[in-house]
């Protein structure tokens, strides 16, 4: 690619500048996470006292045990898992059905409905927040995880869009052939479309799992009894009552972040596909 010697020299000096810059920028992005982990292993004295030091000495693993036992961690974790799994089930059920219909069926009003679906993605939550809250309370779901899980059974525009894009790539011939053989649409979805769409389904499941794991606004609005708190919300309660015990706060934050980071490393391709199809939603 490089054509002549002069160009080479020219490129080398700016290449070095570019390389130094990229390493510096990466360090700036990584330091907060490193600092979180390092702080989570320090003693409170080391955090409070000068001089400022990077490495925890001694390593205080008890911080983790203390953070966990300072809150009903197991209860929060069980609630979180119920919330995550329930909402993944709801999302897969409702979004798969709608996405298949939008991608593969022709029915009057389909294009109009699809335009409405896209429009709802742009509607700010503030506009629907209050009446939605009241409706969910009327249904008797206030102060239960059901308030957060039930809506996922009624679809989500982003995921429907993502799955529809995937279903569009399935060859129409395969679907027509099955139809000619007398298969029902549900049968086609179940036996042909879903097995082919496994990677897209995994992407949606993963994104929804992470979204439910992180969800803070939902519990803030709908939950009252600590018995029902998921980790995201319970953790914040812990934070406000232990705001001076930085070592425990960081240990709790690391514990809460770790499963998501692990999921990212195990399933990078799925995360990246989600970003590529729906943009910023991740």
């Amino acid at each position: 690619m490089k054509s002549n010697a002069m160009n080479d020299n020219h490129e080398t000096s700016s290449n070095i500048a570019g390389k130094v810059l990229v390493v510096l920028a990466t360090a700036l992005f990584a330091i907060p996470l490193v600092w979180m982990v390092l702080t989570s292993l320090k003693t409170p004295e080391q955090i409070a006292n000068a001089p400022y030091s990077w490495w925890p000495s001694p390593l205080r693993w008890e911080n983790y045990r203390e953070a966990v036992s300072a809150m009903p961690f197991l209860r929060y974790l069980v609630n979180t898992l119920v919330l995550c799994l329930g909402s993944v089930a709801g999302t897969l059920f409702s979004c798969t059905l709608a996405a298949y219909a939008f991608a593969r069926l022709r029915f009057p009003g389909r294009n109009l409905l699809f335009a409405v679906l896209i429009a709802t993605m742009l509607l700010p939550w503030q506009v629907t927040m209050a009446p939605r809250f009241l409706l969910i309370r009327e249904l008797g779901l206030y102060d239960s995880l059901g308030a957060l899980i039930a809506p996922t059974f009624l679809g989500n525009a982003f995921y429907i869009f993502l799955l529809r894009q995937f279903f569009l790539t399935i060859p129409q011939d395969m679907i027509e052939a099955a139809r000619m053989d007398g298969a029902s649409e549900l049968g086609i979805l179940w036996r042909i479309a879903l097995p082919l769409a496994r990677p897209a389904l995994a992407t949606v499941a993963l994104l929804q799992f992470v979204a439910a794991w992180n969800n803070y606004g939902g519990p803030l609005l709908y939950l009252n009894d600590p018995q029902h708190f998921p980790l995201a919300y319970g953790l914040e309660r812990f934070v406000s009552s232990h705001s001076t015990q930085t070592h425990l706060l960081m240990a709790a934050a690391v514990l809460f972040t770790l499963p998501i980071v692990a999921a990212f490393f195990l399933a990078q391709r799925l995360f990246l596909r989600g970003i590529a199809t729906t943009g910023l939603k991740g």
Binding site: W213, A253, I260, V261, F271
Partner: peptide, 10 residues
């Protein structure tokens, strides 16, 4: 991918 609650605490 860091959860907002953890990022805010950090």
């Amino acid at each position: 991918v860091v959860p907002t609650v953890a990022a805010a605490v950090l």
